[in-house]
Amino acid sequence: MTAQEFTSMVKTYQGLVYTVCFQLVQDADTAQDLAQDTFLAAWRAIDRCPAGYEKQWLARIAANKAKDHLRSGWVRKMSTPGDEVMALAGAPPDQGPEAKALAGVGMDELERKILNLREPYKTPCRLCLLEGYTPAEAARICRRPEATLSAQLWRAKKILRQEIEQERRTEDGTISR
Rank of each mutant, 00 (worst) to 15 (best):
K157C: 04
T80D: 04
C125E: 00
R168Q: 10
D172Q: 12
E137I: 03
C128W: 06
Q56P: 06
D172S: 11
D68E: 08
L58Q: 00
S79T: 07
A62V: 06
L129Y: 02
Y53E: 14
C21E: 05
I159S: 00
Q4D: 09
R143K: 13
R48V: 04
K77R: 13
E111A: 15
D94E: 05
Q14R: 06
P92I: 02
D47I: 13
F39W: 07
G73L: 08
V105Y: 01
L24Q: 13
A63W: 05
K122M: 09
K77Q: 11
I141M: 11
I46R: 15
E165A: 10
T134A: 11
A41P: 09
G104Y: 03
D94G: 03
W43E: 15
V10G: 04
A87F: 12
F22L: 15
T30G: 04
C142E: 05
R169T: 12
W154T: 13
W57V: 01
C142Y: 04
M1Y: 09
R112K: 10
L129T: 05
T148I: 04
R155W: 14
Q14Y: 08
A63V: 06
I61W: 14
A99I: 04
K67V: 12
Q23G: 04
A51N: 14
V10E: 05
P50M: 10
F39K: 15
R126N: 04
F6Y: 13
E171M: 06
I46C: 06
D37H: 10
L130C: 01
A151E: 05
E146N: 09
W57E: 04
C21I: 01
A136L: 13
